[in-house]
């Protein structure tokens, strides 16, 4: 990629220069993201372990089949793919903001930071709708021979397999760990998105105030961008683990 010649036989580890050829802040941001990757990894692997240890699990195509203003239409994967595309697109606007920062173009950085923040807020709105829909949406469940109406919470959910009762198919209580893992992991990710939006807002304000022009570089936008892309990266795996498989 680089057309600038790297001096041959550079002794990266002999001191006096960064062996990673990157600033302290950027290296530390990468290490933070690596530790965060292990945190999310541990959550998702724990979820996988529990899911592997039981005989049946909630069917994601059955649980996540609703779309705002679509009533009871059966639309598996539709809403979550909208959320995925929102996050991919806000990732692109973020990388364009970093690009404008390299060119020292303040107006460009401002424009793309605003778009990135709007994308993040749209994603959070979608997640709020999805959680509300799951928690408040009542479904008939057969519990001890009685029909009860349950939403999806961390302690119970109506997503077990269906059985015949009074001549109609009715659901049974689902795997007890489902709600805890779903709300725990998507909530932890949502909180990352929320803090990413706050960080981006601070960066937008600092850009507007001309702080980075005074400093002579837009490296802070790059570091905020690393965090924002990481949030997108985590979503790729949450999307895989909860909605696709």
């Amino acid at each position: 990629m680089s057309t600038t010649a790297i001096p041959t036989n550079t002794k990266w580890w002999s001191g006096g220069r960064s062996p990673f050829n990157a600033s302290y802040g950027k290296v530390m941001m990468w290490y933070f993201l690596m530790s965060d990757a292990f945190t999310f990894g541990a959550f998702l692997i724990s979820y996988g372990t529990i899911r592997f240890s039981v005989n049946s699990w909630a069917d994601p195509n059955h649980v996540f089949n609703a779309f705002p203003f679509a009533g009871h239409a059966n639309l598996p994967l539709a809403f979550v793919s909208l959320m995925t595309f929102i996050l991919i697109f806000s990732s692109v606007t973020m990388v364009l903001a970093v690009h404008e920062g390299h060119k020292m173009n303040r107006k460009g950085v401002e424009k793309y930071m605003v778009l990135t923040i709007l994308g993040g807020l749209a994603f959070l709105g979608c997640q709020a709708w999805e959680w509300t829909h799951l928690i408040t949406g009542d479904h008939a469940v057969l519990v001890n021979g009685q029909i009860e109406h349950w939403g999806t919470t961390v302690s119970k959910n109506p997503w077990g397999h269906e059985v015949m009762h009074d001549g109609a198919m009715v659901a049974t209580p689902g795997p007890i760990a489902f709600g805890g893992y779903f709300f725990g992991i998507t909530g932890f990710h949502g909180f990352h998105v929320f803090s990413g939006v706050i960080i981006n807002l601070v960066m937008l304000i600092k850009t507007r105030l001309g702080h980075f022009d005074q400093r002579g570089h837009y490296e802070m936008i790059e570091k905020a961008g690393l965090y924002w892309h990481f949030v997108d990266l985590v979503w790729v795996f949450v999307f895989l683990c909860f909605y696709l498989i």
């Binding site: 001096p7 220069r17 490296e219």
Partner: peptide, 28 residues
Amino acid sequence: MSDHGVTSPEISFAPEHASGTKRIWRTF
């Protein structure tokens, strides 16, 4: 090169980023 990049004695060169946004959109 001098128009971007962090000037610091620890960093010997700034990686030259592509001038266009073609690669970003292709990745998108």
